[in-house]
Write a protein that binds this DNA or RNA. Structure first.
Lengths: 191, 191
DNA sequence: ACATAACCACACCGGTCGGTATACTCGCAG
DNA sequence: CTGCGAGTATACCGACCGGTGTGGTTATGT
């Protein structure tokens, strides 16, 4: 799992600009909507360099997803560290999600990518699965309870979808409320 | 809302074949991945007829989404009617979802469409919003409680995402379990 | 007999798609 | 001085993109 989300070795300067440009364009407009010509032009380099560095558009897409996963995970972990250790951190995930979604109005990059490459053998597919599994594992670690973790993970994914595709930005706060209730349900279950 | 999900007037035979072919191709491969030439060929007709009937690819996409919404809603209502009236019907939504997802392995058509057309003024966007709002209203009607309905709706959307993009097909049953717990939480809240 | 709508066949438009090839310049390490 | 990896510039490839135009056929209804 960890290797699937490895952002890979350091890139050459032009390679770095290419993956940066591709990441923003892919997220904002979708994968198929963005051509390699536009990526190269935005990065201030050429298609030749793109294919020299990454071999194919599909590989560049997979790298985009790996980088995106690492970025979100680093953001989440950093924000969670500011909270006192304990079950409250599982709740704080929803605060971090709200903060993240304030900037990222196009929703979950992995869900979006699956919409375009699902049902194929695209090299980005394992990255998508690994990211969702990482979030589940994170909830398990934070909640210390598999059943509760699944419950929280479902609320988390639902909130992301409804806040973006559903056009209901306030839903993240309601998801947090639901998470609180899930916690009290766990407490009662364990009595 | 209801008019946004109106499938529209009856179509001519070739128009009907076109929207049928487009629906399956769009859902299976994505919107941008499917060209109008392929749609026309699959329907056994021509591009000319497509543009005579629908005016543009975007309008055909919007119609695809409206039809998809109507089809899911009819399926859900029919299945729910088999259950005795009462709060148990809100739980049955998760059984119906599991049944539906067994055939539809490409996830939520509306979330997928948003991944491709979000951030634009595509005529399909209001349809996506209307469908999500319809599901929320349905949960409110079934649960008779806004807070509980939001909780259930979040679990429902999360289950759809994780069962498909997340590659965790068993998650729908866990979402149902979580929904049961949300119900008992409501009961306790109302005492 | 005539109009009309629906449909079909096909050619065409400018533009973009992912991907390849050739040739050149630069900085740097041996 | 030389070799080499990185980057640039540009042209090219066949295929496909969404969309338009022309002309002709069939069926229905008046």
């Amino acid at each position: 799992m960890t290797d699937l989300l490895d952002p890979g070795p350091l890139l050459t300067p032009a390679g770095e600009r290419l993956v940066e440009a591709a990441s923003e364009l892919f997220y904002r407009h979708g994968i198929r909507a963005v051509g390699v010509d536009l990526i190269a032009e935005t990065a201030g380099t050429t298609k030749k360099t793109l294919y020299d560095r990454f071999g194919s558009k599909d590989e560049l897409v997979a790298l985009y997803l790996r980088r995106r996963a690492v970025r979100w995970q680093a953001f989440l972990v950093e924000r969670l560290d500011a909270h006192p250790a304990g079950p409250g951190r599982a709740l704080a995930v929803f605060d971090v999600l709200g903060e993240w979604l304030a900037d990222q109005d196009r929703g979950c990059a992995f869900v979006n990518a699956y919409a375009e490459i699902g049902g194929t053998d695209h090299p980005g597919l394992p990255v998508i699965r690994a990211e969702k599994e990482w979030m589940r594992a994170t909830f398990v670690r934070l909640a210390g309870d598999e059943v509760l973790a699944d419950h929280l993970h479902l609320l988390y994914e639902g909130a992301t979808v409804l806040a973006t595709a559903g056009g209901q930005p306030g839903v993240v706060a309601r998801a947090r409320d639901a998470a609180v209730e899930a916690f009290t349900g766990r407490a009662r279950r364990q009595l």
